[in-house]
């Protein structure tokens, strides 16, 4: 059953890819939403975290888009976690280099994290969830393989600190590799 579903999806993708070969989907007025998973690597801790991520992006011009991102911490791959809860909310702009069905982009996104580290074993300090400023730099590749769908692969670096631990702030800088599927529609037509 699963094989049949995958085969049907692959056929649909291939068909749409061929049928729309000369379509140029990346243009002003494009509205896009991507969903995927982030694999995070904390730079100051031995913790490789996994997040689920969604974003909404609008192309105000062919080369410029505005994008809001939300990432939700799921778990860590290590035995002992650094984070108990972490939600990233970012908003910023991206510069694009569209080339046929491919699109390379880079962007910056200021934002906030809603973070709660795990209980400290030494001091037994129970950290509250706190809103902290954050900043992200991203590089992304999108493949628009059909009229409505695209794949994406991105890397980004997040700057974030948790203030108020017993030893000062906790450096939560994290490098992410993300991938997933996106949907897009032409929301507005050019006048």
């Amino acid at each position: 059953m699963v094989k049949k579903v995958f085969f049907a999806i692959a056929l649909l993708v291939a068909f749409q890819g061929l049928a729309q070969e000369k379509e140029n989907y990346i243009q002003k007025g494009l509205l896009k939403s991507n969903f995927g998973f982030n694999q995070g690597f904390m730079l100051r801790h031995k913790s490789n975290n996994v997040y689920v991520n969604g974003n909404l992006e609008y192309f105000s011009e062919k080369n410029i888009s505005f994008r809001g991102d939300c990432s939700w911490y799921l778990d860590t791959r290590q035995k002992e976690a650094i984070l108990k809860k972490n939600i990233l909310v970012l908003f910023g702009a991206f510069l694009h280099i569209p080339n046929g069905k491919s699109d390379f982009s880079a962007g910056v996104q200021p934002g906030f994290t809603f973070t709660q580290p795990v209980l400290n074993n030494l001091s037994q300090q129970n950290y509250p969830i706190r809103m902290m400023p954050a900043f992200s730099v991203s590089f992304e590749y999108n493949l628009y393989f059909s009229k409505y769908f695209n794949f994406f692969l991105s890397t980004n670096y997040l700057v974030s600190r948790y203030r108020g631990s017993e030893t000062g702030s906790i450096n939560l800088d994290e490098f992410f590799i993300s991938g997933g599927l996106g949907i897009h529609i032409k929301a507005f037509k050019e006048k």
Binding site: I64, L95, I97, F104, A106
Partner: peptide
């Protein structure tokens, strides 16, 4: 990225 965007 910047230069490409400026010239594009």
């Amino acid at each position: 990225f910047f230069l490409h965007s400026v010239s594009a």
